[in-house]
Structures are given as structure tokens and as C-alpha cells.
């Protein structure tokens, strides 16, 4: 079970076919909740919103024209604010932090319009990067939205 709740939704939906006990386990509400929780915990939230994850904000210094990204390591604990990095002459909205520390940014200001990562531009993105309008972080879950209504 410790292995299974690390799997993506598509694999789990397929693996219901492995045996009766797998079908029961994967359809179980407790398993679904545990899977959802694990997926959420693996995310680092950067935008200042009310989520029990990491919280961050952007600080753009007008005088030196440098851009600083701060992250709150533990939500609600003031002492855990931590400066991730500084980039000169850059302004963008952070969207996501990857496990290796790379940050995905959205740049919505002329002449740039699109996504880039902190190490280099556009490495991770589909080729037509300049046509994207917005991006969102999402968590895959086995829990059906019908249950939430």
C-alpha cells in the first residue's frame, strides 16, 4: 500500500484489473483519501493563498531592479520564511516548485509572454510556448467531484 498510493491515477484505474483485492483496495474511500493527501504533500505552493502547504511571495526591488523569491517553508510559521533566490532584471509570477528545486514561472509582461523555468527558458514546455495564456497547478485524485457537491 505504501507503494500504491504513490502511483498516478491512470495506473491505479488500470490496476483495479490486477485482482479482486486490488480492486477493493483502490476503490476504497480510505485509500482514495490517502492517495489524494500524498499527491498534495508533494506540492510546494508558491503563490500566497490559504493552503496548508508552503507559501511564498515575490519581492521586486525597484531600485536595484532585482527580483527575489521568498518561500514560507512551513505554513503559518513566520520564522520559516526563506529566500529562494534573486534574479536581476526579471519579473514573473512563480507557479510551481519541482522536487529538484527548479521553479516554473509565468511571465505575462511584454515582450515576454509565456512560461520559463528558473534554470533556463522553455526547457520543459511544448514548442508553441508563446501562445499560452495561463497555467494552473493541479493534483490528480481518485475522488470524484460528484462527491463534493
Amino acid at each position: 500500500m505504501d507503494v500504491l498510493f504513490r502511483l498516478p491515477v491512470k495506473s491505479l484505474v488500470r490496476f483495479r484489473c490486477v485482482s479482486k483485492s486490488w480492486k477493493t483496495l483502490i476503490s476504497d474511500e480510505y485509500f482514495k483519501a490517502k492517495h489524494c493527501n500524498h499527491a498534495k504533500n508533494n506540492k510546494k505552493l508558491l503563490i500566497a493563498q490559504m493552503f496548508p502547504d508552503d507559501v511564498g511571495f515575490v519581492h521586486a526591488d525597484g531600485e536595484t531592479e532585482s527580483y527575489k523569491l521568498w518561500v514560507m517553508k512551513e505554513y503559518g510559521v513566520k520564522e520559516t520564511w526563506f529566500k529562494l533566490f534573486t534574479i536581476p532584471r526579471f519579473f514573473a509570477i512563480p507557479k510551481y516548485v519541482f522536487a529538484d528545486g527548479e521553479v516554473l514561472f509565468y511571465e505575462g509582461y511584454f515582450p515576454y509572454n509565456g512560461f520559463r523555468t528558473s534554470k533556463g527558458p522553455y526547457e520543459l514546455l511544448p514548442s508553441s510556448y508563446d501562445t499560452y495564456l495561463q497555467g494552473f497547478v493541479y493534483t490528480e485524485s481518485l475522488i470524484s467531484p460528484n462527491l463534493l457537491i
Binding site: D2, V3, L7, C17, S19, K23
Partner: peptide, 27 residues
């Protein structure tokens, strides 16, 4: 280790998973 195991199972077919984990299909 669990993450590594999950990564290895992730894209496997149902048949391959049964064989890797020695599970008998009772469906």
C-alpha cells in the same frame, strides 16, 4: 524505495504487474 517501486510499476500493463508481484488473477 517505495517511490522507486512506484516508478517502476507506473507504466506497467496489468499482466506485467501480476507477474512482478506474483499475484494470481481471481477476477
Amino acid at each position: 524505495c517505495c517511490q522507486s517501486a512506484a516508478d517502476r510499476l507506473k507504466n506497467k500493463s496489468v499482466r506485467a504487474v501480476r507477474e512482478m508481484l506474483k499475484i494470481t488473477n481471481d477476477l
